[in-house]
Amino acid sequence: MKSEQIVIEPVRGWQVIDWRELRDYRDLFRFLVDRDIKVLYKQTVLGFGWAILRPVLSMVIFTIIFGNLAQVDSDGVPYAIFSYVALVPWLYFSTALSASALSLVNNTEMLTKIYFPRLVFPMTPVFSKLVDFAISFVIVFVLMAWFRIMPTARMIFLPLLVALMMLTAAGMGLWFAAMSVKYRDVKHAMPFLTQILMYAAPVVWSGTLIAERFGEIGRILFGLYPMVGVIEGFRSALLDTGPMPWDMILIGTFSAAVMFVTGLFYFRRMEATFADVA
């Protein structure tokens, strides 16, 4: 056994991120992601069918209300697939964000009984929720075949968009998770917040409305919300609703990176108090 020395001292203020320690615990991270995935649909009749059913049912409701009744513009593609292509990244984002934000308050038992890098908690859902995302994504191709829509070559950029969507969920998740230990308000605010965030993103409406209503400046400002670029990017790549919105994606990447890095440091700063106030 290699000898190592641990020094424990009072911690104050900002902390650096201990990458070496995170690497030592990578197996734990894997097993936690694994656990999340295995446990999610245990003792359900539909099992992973829920990963399909949830976005499909949302799609049906949105198509009836926004597509048929409210006649929301859908960039020239059938409203059903227009909303479904947005719902796939959106549902990933909202479930990963909520799970990440509540990961500490839902695990206080572990928090107060055992030590391991706390960063593992909020990062786990960011990866485990990808399974649902992948399953529901398959349905996109079924719908595209049904509506006879050919994907574009811009599909090669999808992994980039997926990475951006994960970064956004992780960044916001870190902030809310760190806050939630002391301020349990987060727990009560989360369902409401994800709803607001959904209507702020072009899930049920088209991103082209932004430029129409708020001009180019509005478009840039909206881009600060990374999910706007992600969803519009998905539509561009799969449904050919327009060119890839690179400007928005770039601004979104910038703000997601800022949120993630500041989130990491804020989390580390709050980390020392978790066990005491949990």
């Binding site: 641990i6 424990i8 911690v11 928090l111």
Partner: peptide, 9 residues
Amino acid sequence: ITPPSAGRV
């Protein structure tokens, strides 16, 4: 699990 307020280990 929790950091000390003073001292060293």
